[in-house]
């Protein structure tokens, strides 16, 4: 069940292949590069190199996994344009995940190392990205990344703090500190760690196993365009 996964939503461009080795063991091959721009130039050569290093042909792929956002509008579209192109060219089934869910699994993996001094069990993991103007993109997870406690949304940290009332919060991502501050101000318990965590295609490839197939390859923008109609 060879899966090609890629993400271009935020300040990293990554691709991963999950495949069976000759011994039947699962293998991951990946490339991950942090970059502010240039995803549209980097992504396809990155995938080409991964495929050729794994000695795979595109006909060997069985599944495509892509993040749908939230993210930079352009970034989300780059990944989805590639996914739509691959689907058209290969007729493969597709799974999608939010960028925030992929970040959640990456964060969980990092927290599990024990280096960050927080106990994940029993806490809610709030993945928060600074969306500027005092708002954050946020998705909140309990024990299961497949079933978020709160769906991804664009909101103020204060609103989210209210929605999370009574839970112990681990906030990660560039907007994590904003949420932790709001939760603490409201008398709750929150800690912000891993402010620099970004999605990584490795975790997308792993999550893709259990994710449901979809026909929908639409971006999750969470925000309208800024344009205002002309006065009539």
């Amino acid at each position: 069940m060879t899966t090609l996964a890629f993400d271009t939503c935020f300040g990293a461009c990554s691709a991963a292949l999950r495949l069976r080795g000759v011994a039947g063991d699962w293998q991951l091959r990946e490339d991950y590069r942090e970059m502010a721009t240039g995803h549209a130039e980097a992504l396809l050569p990155m995938i080409a190199a991964l495929m050729s290093a794994a000695d795979l042909r595109f006909a060997d792929l069985r599944k495509i996994a892509v993040t749908i956002g939230p993210g930079s509008f352009t970034g989300a579209r780059i990944g989805l344009s590639a996914a739509r192109g691959f689907r058209l060219a290969l007729g493969l089934p597709v799974v999608t995940l939010t960028s925030l869910a992929v970040m959640a699994m990456r964060a969980d993996t990092l927290l599990d190392t024990g280096h960050f001094g927080v106990t994940r069990a029993g806490a809610a993991l709030a993945v928060c990205v600074d969306a500027r103007a005092g708002r954050i993109y946020a998705e909140v997870f309990g024990d299961s990344i497949a079933e978020p406690l709160l769906a991804p949304a664009l909101r103020t940290p204060a609103d989210l703090a209210v929605a999370l009332h009574g839970r112990r919060i681990i906030a990660v991502g560039s907007g994590g500190a904003m949420l932790a501050e709001a939760v603490t101000a409201a008398g709750g318990e929150a800690v912000a760690v891993l402010p620099g965590v970004l999605p990584h295609a490795r975790h997308l490839a792993l999550l893709a196993d259990a994710a449901p197939l979809t026909e929908q390859l639409d971006p999750l923008y969470l925000r309208d365009t800024d344009a205002k109609p002309m006065p009539v």
């Binding site: 396809l44 995938i47 579209r77 344009s81 590639a82 739509r84 192109g85 060219a89």
Partner: peptide, 19 residues
């Protein structure tokens, strides 16, 4: 417009690579 250009170009790149 760069946003539109990227949609077309990346789609084409993916088909080009896959085929």
């Amino acid at each position: 417009l760069i946003g539109g250009l990227l949609v077309g170009l990346v789609t084409a790149k993916a088909i080009s690579l896959a085929r």
